[in-house]
């Protein structure tokens, strides 16, 4: 069975989905990612979907689930590179992925994760000072 590789960059995990995913592959990705977050103690997960030509409700739900699960495991998920046609279709479908953060590309996604982690640290620091 095909397999979607998960790369570790610093304290982030990077996934680039390059194949038209069938449902079991999406579920496998969800399982592998959550395991890998725990093993690597990753703080951020970057999912690049710029190669995906469609995102239907199942794939959309999987992305949402990954974000929620990662959140529970103290990692921030950013989905990057969604194509305009895919975004328009998802909105029409009624799927706004409220739990998912997004960025235009991998670079911007990494910045977003970095800033979110820093903000969190900043808040903690400020809290300790008071």
């Amino acid at each position: 069975m095909e397999h979607i590789p998960i790369l570790k960059i610093g304290d982030c995990l990077l996934v680039s989905i390059q194949v038209d995913m069938h449902d079991r592959l999406a579920i496998a990705l969800q399982n592998n990612l959550t395991e890998k977050i725990v093993i690597t103690k990753a703080r951020g997960v970057l999912i690049d979907i710029s190669a995906l030509e469609i995102v239907d409700s199942f794939i959309g739900r999987t992305l949402n689930n990954i974000a929620s699960m990662a959140n529970v495991l103290d990692a921030i998920t950013v989905v990057v590179g969604m194509r305009p046609a895919v975004a328009i279709t998802l909105v029409e479908l009624g799927l706004n992925l409220p739990g998912v953060r997004t960025a235009l590309d991998v670079d911007k996604g990494l910045v977003l994760i970095r800033n979110s982690i820093d903000d969190e640290l900043g808040e903690i620091d400020a809290g300790e000072l008071n």
């Binding site: 409700s57 199942f58 479908l93």
Partner: peptide, 17 residues
């Protein structure tokens, strides 16, 4: 158009599932 293609493919994917 790309948008129209994507819409019908997505609809097909939903119903096929």
């Amino acid at each position: 158009s790309l948008v129209d293609q994507t819409k019908l493919i997505t609809a097909a994917s939903e119903i096929a599932r």
